[in-house]
Design a protein around this nucleic acid. Sequence first.
RNA 1: GCGCCCGUAGCUCAGUAGGAUAGAGCACAGGAUUCCUAAUCCUGGGGCCACAGGUUCGAAUCCUGUCGGGCGCACCA
Length: 491
Amino acid sequence: MTLNKDFWASQVGAILSQGRDYGNSTIGANAKINVEYVSANPTGPLHIAHARGAVIGDALANLLAKAGYDVTKEYYINDAGSQIDTLARSSYLRYREAFGEEITIPEGFYPGDYLVAVGENLKARDGDKWMNAEEADWLPVVRDFASDAMVVKIKEDLAQLDIVQTFSSEKALVKSGAVERAFKMMDEKGVMYRGVLEPPKGKAPEDWEPREQWLFKATDFGDDVDRPVQKSDGSWTYFANDVAYHFDKHERGFVEMVDIFGVDHGGYVKRMKAAVQAITSVEGSLDILLCNLVKLSRGGEQVKMSKRSGNFITLREVVEEVGKDIVRFLMLTRKPDAPLDFDLDLVIQSSPDNPVWYLHYANARIEALFKMTRDLLPDLEINDKDLLGADLGLLGESEELNLIKQLTAWPRVVESSAKAREPHRIAFYLNDVSAAFQRWYSTGNKNAALRVVVQGDKDLTTARLALAKATAHVIASGLAIMGVEPLKEMR
RNA sequence: GCGCCCGUAGCUCAGUAGGAUAGAGCACAGGAUUCCUAAUCCUGGGGCCACAGGUUCGAAUCCUGUCGGGCGCACCA
């Protein structure tokens, strides 16, 4: 330990000179990588479960950027499916309602009152133009109008979490003929054929009938069965569109891709990976992260959410209640595939049960050290230049070295977390950093000679403040990946 | 029936190129406040890492099987 003392001390200088950039890596080699997340159907506002995928995806993207990748954050708008028709019909009812008509919302429609404004806005734009029109005439118009309105809402919801993404439209993709192009390309690669599938085991659908159809030879790429790409009415399946979308990403230069899904889409993983293998001739890679459920509670009581009644707590409500940083932090305190409890009361408490505060407290203490130095030792000029010039050889106490070792693990944490695509490790690491700092700090409570600020010893104080500053840099660097602002003081 | 994920302390969870006596928080028992913010720190008890095999010098980690829990299973997205 004594032999290495100078080495460890010199690392503090390295952290100070790089600041928040400490830990930046080049393992990504500036390769283009696409991280796709949220991608919720534009049929309503985002709710709390969406937030988990949103935060994990966004943090992963930030992490990959720090690891040296050229990252694109992307949102795939599923605006071409049948649920958009349902959205349009639901909105059309609200449109009629805007003219004073009594409406009843049938089973299977979207009952949420967020569509009231859509109906009113449509009335404001088009007047009574659609009141006596046939569905075939108004449906395409209302479809666009309503889904555009929902996309606007979703973007607002994401903006509240500081999430900005590139939006790609399924509808536009299909319109451009991308699906036909992808199909043709795959047919030429010999991975498409006409065939009949076995009926699914277990619960067989009543309307099952053997049918010859176009199938993707997914079993050649690790999937369990071959996958249909065309529905019986001749239109493309969702999967076919998604294949085309991933082909589109590949054509845009992304060799590596990451998709963030909910656990309920776990059955979709193999076929999508198989498709990317086929599309890219096994050169590309697709990683898929499955996010487990978020159990929202309040004071231990589970908050009931009913989609059917449209009575669910929106992401917007949660963010307005507890704040962006707490939402983002909490979402990263579990590995993605573990279920997560989110207690609205607990997370805003200043309680030891609240993991957010522990980290903030460490950072606030560091800020307080500098504030106090200015107040108590006005003759001591502390600025970045002084800190860089500190005699770091004065550091060497056991808890000092322990903290330094913890800090110097940061670059390795960045690289291993990026490789594993697991941004939650950042949260756990920062917790360890905070603990190491608190342990060091508290040694000063028992022994005044071990305090950071030592009266009458400018050199030692400067060296220790340098270590405190280095700690703050690493915390800031990690929180930046998580998308959380460090707190300078506790209130 | 098949596929994927999970099973680690009383509770909630980390532990990921296989590596030393398996870690943290909460809870429980005790201790620290003439102090740089105690929203903190220290000490202690508490584990057959679901179970059984296998690979290895070495397994919570890799392989096989069993049990238990979650999710999914044409022409929805």
